[in-house]
Nucleic acid binder design. Structure first.
Lengths: 222, 222
DNA sequence: ACTTTATCAATTGTCTACAATATACAAACT
DNA sequence: AGTTTGTATATTGTAGACAATTGATAAAGT
């Protein structure tokens, strides 16, 4: 008596528009500075302006777009300072999350982390750019999950979004990727040994190096 | 040639509605669980539903209200766990802000902090409940300003909002207030001496004690 | 030439009407 | 009696029309 039919999700047009626009921004398809005219968007997505407007208000409060009254909405520009702040915040949040995860994480969750890291290293070795990125996100999301702190998870969500956007906008050398994948190995080792200090060191180094690599070749697009 | 006329602010109805509703929630006038019907709100504020809806979408992404599709919007309920997380996050953010403020703060900013604290202690001595709260907020906002970190300031904004809401909902013993005012004295002393470790201790103790006082007599209103 | 004012086009802001959905409750069926 | 099905009502979701505002450009005045 369990046919296991797939849930039919009835997403409102607002939410579909929101997801579409956010995805376009985070993937770099919509570039910083790009003008988002409500009428254009509504025509492109084949809907009226009302749900588009509500989606834009949400994107605005997420900090992804900027609206000037009676003038228009644009994708928010990112300065080098923004990126430095972003990675500083990442270290702060993730380090805290890691400390809590060491105390509150369950054995199966550590095993899950291990599985992610293994897959990430394999993906890095075969040069699968997209897979490494996806698994890296999985790893850090899982870490947040383990920390059992919904408020921080919400804030992490914001930070992770912008990190994704930055990563999409910068053209990374693929050689960095296998290295970044391998960074997770000693980090996870230290975590499994419940060595908070050492794990913190690796985490900070990992994030900071990723941030520096990006800030380095960030061209102010102004 | 400077008549110094007051700026006429042309705030959109959406923003006025947003400010009004947010203020009502943060001041405790609109209580957690309270239903916010779009039609009612639009009638009460004398505007149409469109700007109300946009305001509600923003409040939703700020985490102040919750919307269930086709069912309605309500003021978000606060559990005891929420409050504990809130004060945990406050310690994390403010401690980081303080560290940065010690490095980046200007002399006049430290003087400003001192002025705030002096006024706060005086207000506490004469039992001026509202003034202590306002000055306490000023102090922590000024600290954020000094840390020169706009992303953290944005996150602080979220945390500070919810702190304000919680403070409005709990019935505090006024005796606590003068004590809380005086907590700022040794903290600021340590900061002026650039003693990061000691300032961090006072800060954590200050916030944690405030959080505990509140979590203590938090009645789950469910 | 320069300043000021008028006009225009583009865009967002707001309103009203209508459609879609969810919940509760009544009615029909077994 | 209990379960299912239909219906009513309240509420949110969406659409399209109109109003308000801005910035640029042209016209008028000095």
């Amino acid at each position: 008596m369990k046919p296991n039919l797939p849930q039919i999700k009835n997403m409102s047009i607002r939410e579909q528009s929101l997801d579409t626009l956010r995805e376009a921004i985070l993937s770099g398809e919509l570039k910083p500075g790009q003008a988002l005219t409500e009428m254009d968007l509504s025509r492109q997505l084949g809907v009226s302006r009302a749900p588009i407007r509500e989606a834009l208000r949400i994107l605005n409060s997420e900090g992804l777009v900027e609206t000037i009254p009676y003038h228009g909405t644009t994708v928010r520009r990112l300065t080098r300072a923004d990126i430095e702040e972003l990675y500083g915040m990442r270290i702060l949040l993730e380090n805290y999350a890691m400390e809590r995860a060491l105390q509150l994480g369950q054995p199966d969750e550590f095993a899950h982390l291990r599985a992610i890291v293994n897959a990430m290293v394999r993906a890095g070795d075969r040069g699968d750019f997209r897979a490494v990125n996806a698994l890296d996100r999985d790893f850090h999301d899982a870490l947040m999950e383990m920390s059992r702190h919904s408020l921080m998870a919400a804030m992490w969500q914001m930070v992770a979004m912008k990190v994704r956007q930055v990563m999409a906008l910068v053209n990374r050398r693929n050689s960095d990727l296998t290295q970044i994948a391998r960074h997770h190995l000693p980090l996870l080792d230290a975590m499994e040994a419940r060595d908070q200090a050492r794990a913190g060191e690796y985490l900070r180094a990992h994030i900071a190096s990723a941030g520096d690599l990006i800030a380095e070749d960030w061209l102010e697009t102004e």
